[in-house]
Design a protein around this nucleic acid. Structure first.
Lengths: 197, 197, 197, 197
DNA sequence: CATGAATGAGAATTCATTCAT
DNA sequence: GATGAATGAATTCTCATTCAT
């Protein structure tokens, strides 16, 4: 797996464009970002932009895939290190926050675009499914008293609560102390993970 | 408060443009909808469009305000009729669903635009605050054992869980039975409304 | 069939664009002519260009159709006036020259484009068929001694000789006296129109 | 006249580029063919393309010259072999067909470009002149009864008839039997080669 | 000497907005 | 007023050509 200097430079240029893309999409939104700006921020010519990415939408998709890969590897790495097979909800909540930390407003853009673009909707809904699945798995391990559809419903509720709450502290800057919110989220997970007798 | 026929016609044209706007913004997104299309769907000329609304963004803001008014009056009407001061969480959840039913993808568009437009952000965050406030009020009435910041955190969690869960059944069409999800949401509210001894 | 002043102006603008198109396509070729130039020569904005014609190729097609109509009406008008049903080859040759006179290099561009664009090929080959048909008809009237396939072959030869010869005097400016060439062409038609005993 | 292996390889690369050029220009037209494609089909880098040919137009000119040489050598070779000084019109017609067989749509592209490029016009008109000259020569040998300008006119007619007829069977695929058309062409030449008393 | 990544001028096209009728 | 033709700035995208490796 040795790379020639040229291959390395190609990958660097590609990376510069991906980074410029995520920065500008996050900051100004997809439609308010034009290809020239992206190229400029990446420090390359507009021609290069188009030789690396067929068009702006393709760039968005590649960024999306790139960051999903990065983001999902959080859990996998954690697992390996701690040798714990069973996913911990405390960890889950904190990882969700990490995800937001480095994806900034980007996923919000994606949410929007997913409305009008099928391919993006597909990629994004796969991603959400993977996260939902993680909650599902945790629930199943603790709650054999629930039906499958109850598990599904609770997963959605837990996912939404986490996602939305984090979003609010990160973006809308609601007037709430972060640590208390996290504690409450963990408390909520705990509530659902304990079988009601 | 009598209106001349001309004034009435003006109001009607205005309404037709607002409706066309919400329809197209919801279906195709703000940036993929152009003013010509809106005028066409409303059955008026592009010239008229601009005599009613200074520009496309103003139309969006007016739609936003219009629907927030409609939407918030749900609770107020309920209150007046039933003479119940105390907001019922079952009602709250079901009203949230109603809101979604007639605003469709519109608010999602607004979420996006809010990122890059301060004025829209302002209007939209006021709206969210009002909804959060409703949950806050309910919580305060039932839970004198919680601190203010805990109330805030729980409000956010409840709001996010409700908003997100509804969104998922309406848009992402997650594989979950609607009624079970609603029951679980109500169950969640109940959990928080009952003082833990 | 009364037209409002606005409709008249629209038709005039359209005509100006068609004229500018034929002028520039003929002079500089399709690929060396850009839409801005056409708009400029027509004295309208680039935006107008695109509101009248979806794109450059559509303009070309519309010009093609427009001039074919003009061009083919030569014979039909002649017929009406002279009440002569039977097409005269002297007239045919002279009409072919007239056609070239006002289409200039345009049809040459079309010939080229027809190679790579099916729709243009279709329009142009229909046109050629109509002209060939005229020769066919003349031949059939005079030569009941020839087989159908001989008629076809001779039609093609006569058409090509006329077309090519005119082309040469108009474009390649071959060193030949126009009137002599015309006389020779007419002589050629005569040769084929007289039954060989 | 010995060539080093390197010189041979250079010639081969050059030939590969010329071949790729004619193939793509013929198939898709000059303006729809880009230099990258040509290099790719030739199996060399774009950098090499530009070290062999200053630019795209130079390539076209060199192809044109190359194929004119090939094409004109038909007659010369024939002459040499058969030792017949006098050009035979049957041969002329059949050679014209051969020319088309291996130049395909290429000359048509050239016709077009000749309109807007003087150098190409020059090369191409020289070529046409040489072919016309051949007909001229044949005519002069048989028809001392004609004036010089009549000879010129008839040459143009014969050339156009042949060129156009072949074009029609090769490209426009007119509904005509090839052999009959060829017979009629030869018959036409014969008609002009025989002195009318 | 070959390579192909990088360049950027230039072409096509869109669309919010204006304004003469 | 209402209309819709006209405008042109802004954007996307292409491709001939260069030049560092």
């Amino acid at each position: 797996m040795s790379h020639t200097p040229q291959e390395i430079r190609k990958m660097e240029t590609r990376k510069k464009l991906l980074d410029a893309g995520i920065t500008l999409f996050s900051a100004n939104g997809y439609y308010k970002t034009n290809s020239k700006e992206i190229a400029k921020l990446a420090g390359v010519s507009i021609g290069s932009f188009y030789s690396y990415f067929e068009d702006k939408k393709i760039l968005l998709k590649e960024i999306l895939n790139y960051y999903i890969d990065q983001t999902m590897s959080l859990e996998e790495n954690q697992d390996e290190k701690s040798q714990i097979k069973e996913m911990d909800y405390d960890l889950f909540v904190r990882n969700m926050i990490l995800r937001h930390e480095f994806s900034e407003g980007f996923f919000q853009q994606v949410t929007l675009l997913a409305n009008t673009d099928e391919e993006i909707e597909k990629i994004y809904s796969d991603y959400r499914s993977r996260l939902l699945k993680q909650i599902d798995t945790m629930l199943i391990q603790h709650r054999d008293d629930l039906s499958e559809s109850e598990i599904s419903a609770i997963s959605i509720i837990l996912y939404s609560a986490t996602e939305g709450a984090i979003h609010k502290i990160k973006f809308h800057r609601e007037n709430v102390e972060e640590e208390i919110l996290i504690q409450q989220l963990i408390h909520l997970f705990k509530h659902y993970m304990i079988k009601t007798t």
